[in-house]
């Protein structure tokens, strides 16, 4: 498995990245940790004549927590997420999810930015970020703009990011309450058979608001407002959970693969979501 030849660039600032993207258009791609891209290049399923490595670009790293406002630089690795005690206190679901991604070596290289920007329906962070209502910051020739995670994904590997833009950071407001990320996979290193991110807030014995997203059950991550609404103003009892699950299942569209047929995936999606809701509620 040998990739086709390419030119390699390692710019030190965003302007340099954007200049390269403008110059080479479709023929250029940025690379963060490379653990999605490099295997595709080795299999020659992705040919990239101009490869732009982001590792030296200033300002793309770091996790900042300002009250409930959380900002994660695109080059933050899954390992960084897991190790960050402040983040674990402010938004523990990130550590919970990151620990379920790939394996230790891959988590050392795999980044939040790469995970959300790639548009791979198997990646875990997109669904999680939709659940958290995160905003993605994109920088391009025309400056900076933000796109909500919930508006970012168009189809498999197709996103709102244009070829000349770079995703530089992910930000969101940490919510009070409980959250959980549940994932079923065949083994460590596998993508999800089904995964669910749930965040909910409690007022007394009822749920004030809920956000639910699911991973690898469609060609894009699925944020289900209907599922969240089904939990709101309920005591999160069995009938409310069932309503939420039914609503979420109406929004997913899994396809058959080696992990199993559609009927199985839909069933497991319901089970995993039920578990995630119960877990989040217990933490709320």
């Amino acid at each position: 498995m040998i990739p086709a030849p390419f030119d390699y660039y390692r710019p030190t600032d965003i302007a340099g990245v954007i200049a390269l993207l403008e110059e080479h258009g479709d023929d250029a791609r940025v690379m963060a940790g490379g653990h999605s891209l490099i295997p595709m290049m080795k299999l020659r399923m992705a040919e990239i004549p101009h490869l732009i490595d982001l590792q030296d670009v200033a300002g793309l790293g770091g996790i900042t927590i300002d009250g409930s406002e959380i900002r994660i630089g695109a080059m933050t690795t899954q390992a960084d997420l897991i190790d960050h005690e402040g983040l674990a206190a402010a938004a523990p679901i990130l550590r919970e999810a990151a620990l379920q991604i790939a394996d230790p070596q891959v988590r050392y290289m795999g980044t939040v930015g790469g995970n959300v920007a790639n548009g791979d329906p198997g990646n875990d962070m997109p669904g999680l970020m939709q659940c958290l209502d995160a905003q993605f910051t994109l920088v391009g020739p025309d400056g900076e703009r933000t796109v909500a995670a919930r508006d970012f994904y168009e189809a498999a590997y197709m996103t709102a990011r244009t070829d000349e833009e770079v995703l530089t950071c992910v930000s969101f407001t940490a919510q009070p309450g409980g959250a959980a990320y549940e994932k079923q996979k065949r083994k460590i290193g596998d993508y999800a058979t089904a995964a669910a991110a749930v965040q909910l807030t409690r007022e007394g014995s009822t749920c004030a608001a809920a956000s639910i997203a699911m991973t690898n059950l469609s060609d894009v991550p699925v944020w289900s407002p209907a599922a969240g609404a089904a939990l709101a103003d309920t005591p999160v009892d069995d009938s409310a959970i069932k309503a939420a699950v039914d609503a979420a299942l109406a929004d997913i569209d899994p396809t058959e693969d080696n992990r199993g047929p559609v009927k199985f995936k839909r069933h497991v999606a319901g089970v995993i979501l039920t578990r995630a809701i119960k877990s989040a509620w217990a933490r709320a």
Binding site: Q184, R186, T193, R259, G260, P261, K263, F264, H267, V268
Partner: peptide
């Protein structure tokens, strides 16, 4: 006996 085939056994036996 991967996950979906075990699930299929249960499904075929009416356990769902």
């Amino acid at each position: 006996h991967d996950h979906w085939r075990i699930w299929q056994i249960a499904n075929d036996l009416g356990l769902h």
